[in-house]
């Protein structure tokens, strides 16, 4: 939903970043307002995942230029956990397995950290169990997964559901979902996309990083961006995704060549 007067949640300006001294992002500009759904597409290696990790504060990535303001404040002044508590959520492309750490306990600690920042009361073990069981319905997840270690032995689809469950519990302001659709069969994709749709509101926004039109059939984007060579090369509406499905990315090389980048 595009409302020009809606709150500017994320303002990315000329962002440059590198990993292991290799420049990856080379001037990303993107503004995300409340209520909007943005899709970021592009080939492998174009910088999509790097963008998501930078926004979440991954320590292996270094910002070398530009700025990101989250609700007016410098995002980079915040530790990863502070960003999460203030409502920035990254749905991982490859959710991490943590043997020995109970999923339920992890979810409770995370939920309470966010609630505390929002001025809400922390939930004790019993209250949290009721709370999480409600949220499980959003992703039609089996409660048995709460008893297991975080993501350990989960299938690809179960891991992605667990990500959306975390999103449901943390009630983020801005969600960056990094290839949440990868590795999902059609049914799982519908469930996960349905979860994201249920969780979106006029006050929140999401950035969907994806390779496929398929996800965008389920979650309608307001904007579609194509990333290449570390920046956003083209922006359009949902029709751009449909067009990409037909024409692929060959035009990207031509445009980069014209600009003398490639």
């Amino acid at each position: 939903m595009i409302r020009p007067d809606a709150e500017l949640l994320l303002d990315i300006s000329d962002l440059h970043a590198s990993v292991e001294d290799q420049p990856i992002l080379k001037g990303v500009n993107l503004q995300v307002r409340a209520g909007e759904v943005h899709a970021v597409m592009g080939r492998n290696g174009s910088g999509k995942s790097t963008l998501s990790k930078i926004l979440a504060g991954h320590p292996s990535y270094r910002v070398t230029g530009g700025s990101v303001r989250y609700r007016g404040d410098d995002l980079f002044a915040l530790e990863p956990e502070e960003r999460a508590r203030l409502g920035v959520f990254l749905g991982f492309q490859y959710p991490v397995e943590i043997p020995g750490v109970s999923n339920l306990e992890f979810l409770r600690v995370a939920t309470n950290a966010r609630r505390d920042t929002q001025g809400q009361e922390e939930l004790d073990t019993f209250e949290f169990e009721d709370h999480v069981r409600e949220k499980l319905k959003v992703v039609q997840m089996d409660p048995a997964f709460l008893e297991r270690s975080v993501n350990q032995g989960f299938s690809g689809g179960e891991k992605k559901r667990n990500e959306i469950l975390q999103m449901a519990l943390l009630e983020p302001v801005i969600s960056i979902l990094d290839e949440t659709d990868s590795g999902l069969d059609i049914d799982a994709l519908r469930i996960v996309a349905g979860g994201v749709n249920q969780l979106s509101s006029p006050d929140t926004a999401s950035i969907l990083i994806t390779h496929y039109q398929r996800l965008l059939d389920e979650i309608t984007p307001d904007y579609v961006h194509v990333m290449a060579a570390g920046r956003i090369l083209r922006t359009g509406g949902r029709e751009l995704a449909v067009e990409l499905e037909q024409i692929g990315y060959d035009w990207v090389d031509e445009q980069l060549a014209t600009e003398g980048v490639a």
Binding site: A56, P59, P80, E81, A84, L90, I98, F106, A110, A113
Partner: peptide, 14 residues
Amino acid sequence: QDQLFYLRSRGVAA
């Protein structure tokens, strides 16, 4: 490190 980051990205202090 990836496990630490995963937990921190969910609001859990380092």
